[in-house]
Design a protein around this nucleic acid. Structure first.
Length: 875
DNA sequence: AAGTTCACG
DNA sequence: ACGTACGTGAACTTG
């Protein structure tokens, strides 16, 4: 016989919590689902953690309760429930029905009172009870057998209030929580309390006297003139407040514990509801395969082992099918093609032999429409099949329409434009250990549906792009860039394994020594890489004072450790261990594994990923190779030219983001500074600190630099205070002075936020868009984040536009001048090339020239260049 | 799979 | 009162 375990949930409170904790998710029928989703997550968590035998969700019944007859303004002044939440309540009810979880509400009473009454009944039977709410008032219900869990941050993090915990935290008993509320009131419920009495005073009084009644009995003994006066003048209010805060434990319920038994959900109803709400992750967790969308029409895909000229039209959708997402290393299955009439599939072994098909692929006059142009260029280049004339890229087009929709699968890109005809790769090939190559006809069918989707979507998407004035951006910037990036990826960067290994051996030695030093100081061995274990050593064993906390415990991040360094000798060793460990694992071991047989690394540039229009780099990431510290910078010596005696050549934009800001904001002083060729951080320091150029100290320049960074990121006093390690107030003053000095910037910041609110998105100079739905959120955090994004994205995004344009111009120029130099990498504001030494003088002239004239701004763009025998030497 | 940390612009 | 600087990717630990 199992013992009873009763769980009582405060429905309204948890729904609110879920709603505000999560962004406003909308499913495709336009219903908001964030509260239902969050609530479901909480519920699943509770069911798993608590394993209840009995369960109830209590709801607030209506607007007025018996408390309103005591105090008509009870819960007054509250903002009304947002409609986006209200519309979700019916779904919450449905959810609970599907779970077979009893729900209850009672006229004139609040959920609290239902929970209070049931918890007392349960206590009488000494059944173990857990109360869950977001409202701290309920902690008054804690007893030996009743634990009250209050949601903390997010949706699954709870603080458990037992009588012991309350004693520890407040130094009072659970029932005294009522007295505490009586004295201090509760702004959210509009309970007045006693003016001038907050938590501290309330607790002090209660520890001394025990209750509101006792406080008033002992009024004469209370010290503090003002306090005594406030108490005296508000006696009635204090007692009323206490009454309001008291949860009714004898509500006239029409149900009892016997009605609460829980024995699991109705799987069928639950799956149906999750499907309706499009909770695909939850469905997958339940083991229900996400429903493969029905193909719009059954298409016939013919497998051909040889194509004829009759099969090849002037314009065709071409899709290269493979199982892995890394097209540079994956086995290639074959190519599916369609001209809107027939669909055929050619296995790769046949493609390689098919001269007619290869000629067609290489012919720029034959238009190819595809799902991923760069993959087609690069993957086929790797097996010596040149491709030319790609005129449409579905993924790229969908990304330009809305970069926030992330697609790791063509089916998702197609779905974003309303095409549900493609099965997920994961459901065709399986995932994880179950992934396997299916029969050829299945591959052919799958590849065929993708080609068909591309063919059918081309017009719709192009139309959409034209409507948004984004067709230029897509067709004349991103699409040509895809070809260039493909070329860069297949070229690759020669990587000297010997150099990596030499650095690696040295690092291993130092790491071993550091490890033993750390263990010796700590007096024990432990995993230094585990923040959890390290936290125990530093903050419990050694007894250092924690500065910051994370969700899971003490923070041991570098900025925290740096502050602790003077306190204990172990810290500097840990910092060095971390620094060197990072180099070893990510940049020596990780990078070495990525070197292909040709002695090169072939990164892939993600072109349809970032929210701002930047590229990203994976397998390996060559956009974050160390440079700031000399030890790490040495890694760059391993990146060398792929031809004997060639050189590496690098060119980077100087202050491109601040120049873009100067242009966009039209701030006269900023523009003037750049036109005059001034050192922008020094100039900022002169203005912010009001001193002459000669009097700018290095510290002032450092602060000004941080302010400039902050401006670009979308400034906040908190952020700046963190970066400069100064009080927030001082940071706020810096910002104010800055914005007074550069009024055009201030104007821009204000305008762009207004603009984002009005249009729902911000855009770059080349009309790249980023939608910011949170900009109108009532949630302070979400809104703040969206506002900073609104300020930053046009700047970062325009800089991305500019370098992309420069890459296209550069590619043309190298060809026109018939140079052997090859573009290898892009690192956001710099381009890296390899070239024969005889082209050096020409590159020194051409590269900066092309980059500087990529886009005309009302300030000059400035490019610095350097060269050397390795990437390390381009300084 | 999520959280933490740290490398870059 | 809230609690963040903007944009990424990789390695590692832990649940």
């Amino acid at each position: 016989m199992t013992t009873k375990k009763i769980v009582l949930l405060d429905g309204n409170s948890l729904a609110y919590r879920a709603f505000f904790a999560l962004p406003l998710l909308t499913n495709d029928s336009g219903i908001h689902t964030n509260a239902v989703y969050g609530f479901t997550m909480m519920l699943q968590n509770i069911l798993k953690e608590e394993q209840p035998t009995h369960l109830l969700v209590a709801w607030d019944a209506g607007k007025t309760t018996f408390r309103h007859s005591t105090f008509s303004e009870y819960k007054g002044g509250r903002q009304k429930t947002p409609p986006e939440l209200s519309e979700q309540f019916p779904y919450l009810r449905k959810l609970l029905t599907a779970y077979n979880i009893p729900q209850y509400e009672l006229e004139n009473f609040e959920a609290d009172d239902i929970i209070g009454t049931l918890s007392r009944t349960a206590s009488a039977e000494s059944a173990e009870t857990v109360v869950i709410s977001g409202d701290k008032d309920l902690t008054q219900l804690a007893t030996e057998s009743t634990t009250v869990c209050i949601t903390r941050k997010g949706i699954t993090d709870m603080e458990m209030y037992t009588p012991e915990h309350i004693e520890e935290k407040y130094g009072i008993e659970p029932l005294q929580i009522i007295d505490m509320k009586g004295l201090m009131g509760d702004a959210s419920d509009n309970i007045p309390g006693v003016p001038g009495v907050g938590e501290k005073t309330a607790l002090k009084l209660l520890k001394e006297y025990g209750s509101v009644e006792k406080v008033y009995e002992s009024l004469d003994a209370i010290s503090g003139k003002k306090l005594k006066e406030n108490l005296t003048n508000n006696e009635e209010q204090a007692f009323m407040s206490k009454q309001l805060a008291t949860i009714e434990v004898n509500a006239p319920l029409t149900i009892g514990l016997q009605d609460l038994s829980y024995s699991g959900p109705n799987e069928e109803q639950l799956t149906a509801l999750f499907k309706e709400l499009k909770f695909t992750t939850l469905l997958e967790k339940m083991g229900v395969e996400a429903e493969a969308p029905e193909p719009v029409e059954e298409i016939e895909v013919v497998t051909k082992h040889k194509v004829t000229n009759a099969d090849l039209s002037d314009q065709m959708a071409v899709h290269l099918e493979m199982m892995d997402d890394n097209y540079l290393t994956s086995d290639l299955f074959g190519i599916a093609m369609t001209n809107g009439e027939t669909v055929f599939y050619v296995p790769m072994s046949d493609v390689k032999e098919d001269e007619e098909l290869k000629t067609w692929l290489a012919n720029p006059e034959k238009q190819k429409l595809t799902t991923d142009a760069k993959a087609l260029y690069a993957a086929l280049a790797a097996i010596d099949i040149p491709v030319s004339g790609i005129d449409f890229d579905l993924t790229l087009a969908a990304y330009i329409v809305n970069p926030s929709l992330s697609f790791d699968d063509v089916s998702e890109a197609a779905e974003s434009i309303g095409w549900n005809g493609i099965q997920k790769d994961a459901s065709v090939y399986g995932k994880g250990a179950k992934k396997a190559v299916p029969a050829e006809d299945i591959i052919a069918q799958h590849a065929g549906t993708k080609a068909v989707a591309v063919w059918n979507l081309q017009e719709t998407v192009s139309e959409k792009l034209k409507q948004n004035e984004q067709y230029e951006l897509y067709h004349n910037l991103e699409l040509p860039l895809a070809k260039i990036l493909g070329k860069m990826e297949s070229t690759g960067v020669k990587t000297d394994l010997d150099i990596l290994q030499k650095i690696g051996t040295e690092l291993s030695g130092r790491l071993e020594f550091l490890e033993s030093t750390i263990y010796e100081i700590a007096g024990q061995s432990f995993n230094i890489n585990s923040p959890k274990q390290l936290g125990v050593i530093l903050f419990e064993k050694i007894g250092l004072t924690p500065i910051k906390k994370t969700k899971t415990g003490y923070s041991t991040a570098a900025d925290v450790l740096e502050k602790l360094a003077p306190e204990h000798e172990i810290i500097e060793h840990i910092l060095l261990y971390r620094q060197l460990g990072k180099l070893k694992s990510t940049y020596i071991d990780g990078l070495s594994k990525e070197i292909h047989e040709d002695g090169k690394v072939h990164t892939r540039f993600q072109q349809a990923l970032t929210q701002t229009g930047r590229l990203s780099s994976i397998n390996p990431n060559l956009q974050n190779i160390p440079i700031r510290l000399e030890e790490g910078r040495k890694i760059r010596a391993a990146f060398v030219p792929s031809e004997p005696d060639w050189i590496m050549f690098a060119a980077d934009y100087s202050q491109i983001e601040l120049r873009v800001l100067a242009h966009i904001s039209q701030d006269e002083k900023l523009i003037e500074a750049f036109r005059a060729g001034a050192d922008i951080h020094t100039k900022t320091a002169m203005d912010v600190f009001g001193v002459a150029k000669e009097d700018v100290t290095s510290n002032m320049r450092r602060a000004a630099k941080a302010v400039n960074f902050g401006i670009v990121y979308g400034i906040s006093d908190y952020g700046l205070s963190q970066s400069l390690d100064i009080p927030r107030k001082e940071a706020a003053e810096f910002i104010e002075t800055y914005l007074k000095s550069f009024p055009g910037v201030k104007q821009y910041m204000d305008d762009i936020i207004q603009d984002a609110k009005q249009r729902g998105f911000v855009s770059t100079m080349m009309n790249r868009r980023r939608y910011l739905p949170d900009i109108t959120s009532s949630n302070f955090n979400l809104r703040g984040f969206a506002e900073r994004t609104a300020m930053n994205t046009p700047i970062q995004g325009t800089a991305a536009d500019i370098i992309k344009k420069a890459m296209i111009d550069m590619d043309h120029r190298l060809e026109k001048e018939d140079l052997q130099a090859r573009m290898l990498l892009q690192v956001h504001d710099e381009l890296i090339f390899e070239a024969p030494p005889e082209e050096l003088e020409q590159l020194k002239k051409i590269v900066p020239e092309v980059m500087e004239s990529a886009l005309e701004l009302n300030v000059p763009l400035k490019v610095d260049s350097a060269y050397g025998a390795s990437w390390y030497d381009t300084k």
